[in-house]
Nucleic acid binder design. Structure first.
Lengths: 348, 348
DNA sequence: CTGCTCTTCTATAACGTTCTAGTTCTCCAG
DNA sequence: CTGGAGAACTAGAACGTTATAGAAGAGCAG
């Protein structure tokens, strides 16, 4: 028999239906469905067959309602952010094997963080993982008073109860500068990310790295942002100023792509005349025709630590908030090279 | 007193807690929280204050469990797809005012469609909205037997019970060709999308439009795909072949971006020597430094129709499956112009 | 005062699970 | 035959809501 099309009639089968069909109690069916012990192999098999026959599917919400634990992690992410997409994938991968489910709630221009978090709370998530949250620290503290909260990629100075998992952004910027200096560059500019999460650290990392190489007088920071647009605008400023640097460290890959594009259109060869470094090692950077030298963030590690921290909080002793910092690593590709002979010092 | 940090202790307040505090029954509190009628203004206010004082928040799961209706729409989307992100935003915007909640489930390399749909079903979604589903038609039919299913952007030939909402891809390709022909182009190539949703229609639209302009012998279709990479590879093929066309219609914006980049690197001026048209009008296309002429899909309309169709199915008479086709529109920007004098015929 | 209608409120039974505390059964030592 | 000890199973109470049915009280015509 084909099931009736549309399926609106005929309620979905429940534990009781399976029990009736198998001739046992609902409690026993529950035991079998959960794989708990307390049923013989013979009945186990029998019940499973009955369940399959009538197309039974456990109701996650009823299940969660009953058990005191919901094993549900709420994740807030930015819809328009490719980097967040990568993080979400990592979070799924870390949470599901640990027996936790993920509830996603998106932030978009038309859907604020407040609303996103409200729906997660209404869904009875046990903990919140917030990707690059923009909410004020006070708001986060307020949330943390209700349930464990992990902030990923947004740094917070010891906000009560909020755990932080982030990349060592300053260290990443340092690696980029070291790489460029090793190639022979001295005139290295930085296009920053303004108030975006991590931007301040990258800016600081750039500045101190330059200082350590005795290049403080070459420090040049241009206001940027996290989109291609921002990078393009900054690149135009550089070109217009006449004295273009021999290398540019952009806030992130998207920003770097904008820089690349502008240089290309202006006939400035990369890496021939100017070297460019990005940040994130997103899919963008890996595309063969862009092939951007960049600073990679360790996504599997960031996400497994974030999930792990949330679970620890839920299952372990309530501890003080922690900040976990993950090391980035430089990924050299083809947008960096030694500076042109006439412009930088000869290498060595 | 500040609430205890971590919040793991002290269960979250329930209806009963509010009722106890306000000195009324839980049923009355329920009425007030839902805004249903049956309570005086005085008590309404009184109850709301009590709820606020103890920080009560309704439990969405218990609520859904009790009411026969869950008013929950399951949405499956591709994490790595910027176009899907735009669609999801539109779906939120269409569903929430109609009193429906959205449950998101992501598809990623490490998380297949099957798994994504399973979690949505377990969550008791009443209907499924699938963005560009890749599952075989038989599988979709099987799902449609259980609950209303809407496929967005993937065309299906009358699969039992599956509604389809999509853009008129052939028409979009036609508009692009018309635009190029009006500018004076004749030698127009198409980089296709292989087996991606919509690719076949765009291919066909291109071919028939060319035919209608008497340009059948100029038809040239190159295998492409939906990433920048694919576009770049096809562009290299075109350049290598010697006889480059005067215009290229790419499968989508990402593909077109790859084409642009390759041309730029090879010193081929756009639109000076070659015009390029994309598809989707994604954020990418609007970036000032790309400023791509493209065929726009009507996202608000696609999403509100998809949501509307799902809701109609849930609330109205069970009807036969429908296919709703939404018109695209050309968005002329700066990557198209009349062909160079020596290569195409003079305009007019 | 009776009988009726409204409004406001309450008691209680669902919803589909899981959990606690049994109840049978079987097996086997004493 | 008694007395446990497990194993296999079940009855019934949660979980936090909403829906249904009805009670209590007010107002008012007859």
């Amino acid at each position: 028999m084909a099931p009736t099309a549309g399926g609106s009639e005929g309620k979905r089968p429940t534990l009781a239906d399976v029990a009736a069909r198998a001739g046992v109690s609902t409690a026993l069916v529950s035991i079998v469905m959960r794989g708990a012990k307390g049923a013989s192999d013979r009945t186990r098999e029998h019940v499973l067959r009955a369940a399959k026959e009538i197309g039974y599917r456990p109701d996650a919400r009823a299940r969660l309602l009953r058990s005191s634990r919901t094993r549900l992690l709420g994740v807030q992410f930015g819809l328009q952010h490719p980097f967040h997409a990568d993080l979400v994938e990592g979070i799924y991968a870390a949470a599901e094997p640990a027996g936790y489910q993920i509830a996603l709630s998106a932030v978009a221009p038309s859907r604020g963080e407040r609303h996103a978090v409200e729906t997660l709370l209404a869904d009875r998530c046990e903990a919140l993982i917030l990707l690059g949250p923009q909410a004020p620290a006070a708001r986060l503290a307020e949330l943390a008073a209700q349930l464990p909260v992990v902030s990923v990629a947004r740094r917070l100075r010891r906000t009560a109860g909020v755990d932080v998992v982030r990349t060592a952004d300053d260290e990443g910027a340092r690696q980029a500068v070291d790489h460029l200096v090793a190639l022979g560059h001295r005139d290295i500019a930085h296009i920053d990310g303004g108030t975006a999460p991590g931007a301040a650290d990258r800016r600081r990392g750039y500045r101190t790295a330059m200082g350590r190489h005795g290049l403080s007088r070459h420090v040049r920071i241009l206001p940027g942002g996290l989109t291609e647009e921002d990078g393009a605008a900054a690149a135009r400023t550089l070109l217009g100023a006449g004295a273009a640097p021999t290398a540019v460290l952009a806030f992130n890959d998207r920003c770097a792509t904008g820089v690349l594009d502008t240089f290309l259109r202006a006939g400035v060869a990369v890496p021939g005349e100017v070297s460019v470094v990005g940040f994130d090692d997103s899919h963008l950077a890996r595309l063969a025709h862009i092939d951007l030298t960049t600073v990679g963030q360790d996504i599997p590690r960031l996400t497994s630590l974030a999930v792990g921290r949330a679970i620890e909080r839920l299952e372990g002793e309530p501890a003080a908030e922690t900040e976990i910092v993950v090391a980035p690593h430089l990924v050299p590709r083809s947008t960096t090279a030694a500076p042109a002979a006439g412009r930088g010092p000869a290498p060595g």
